[in-house]
Amino acid sequence: MGWVLDNLGLIGELTLTHMGLSLIPVILGALLSIPLGWLAHRYPPARGSILSVVGIFYTIPSLALFVLLPPLFGFSILSELNVIVALVIYAIAIMVRSVSDAFSSIDPGALRAATALGYGPWQRFFHVELPLAGPVLLAGLRVVSVSTVSLVTVGVLVGVKSLGYFFTDGFQRRIESEILTGIVMTLVVALIFDLALLALGRAVMPWSLLAAKRLNQEVS
């Protein structure tokens, strides 16, 4: 407990850094996987290849990706960009399939009705498809957010500071409570993100509260 009280400043600072490092991949991952997943859903020939490429990325271990990306993209291995790009790739890998499933699960009758009412393709996408796919998208996004928050900690091995710093530093200095603090704070950040996503879902899709609950149970 003594260590925690002496290091409140550092704990707060690294928690904020950790949140920043996790937030960007979650947002970018969602923005990029929606069009990709939609393409996979809309064009069945592309579906197989999009999903298998994404599946291969999901298979690559994070530490390996942190090492492989810098020479490919030309940034330093110590750069925060390294961790962020790797996590965006994972976010897409996890989410594209659920985006594609989300769009495929929409009742085609609803889409035909929208077209019959005179919706253009873009209008139909934003006013009919996206809202109807929303609950499943949210469930996918929650999985992405939890796993991203946890994976950010591995970045400390290539020198990107996050709550993972407490793991390596606590281990080297043999301070058990320091490691424990890192673990607990990572769980807290994951919980905050999850609650924020739930609140977001409730705000933009008030009708889908029950559906989201059901789907989330299925996903986990």
Binding site: S150, T153, G164, I183, T186
Partner: peptide, 8 residues
């Protein structure tokens, strides 16, 4: 899923 295995 949120538990960081490396820390644990």
């Amino acid at each position: 899923r949120a538990l960081p295995t490396f820390g644990l």
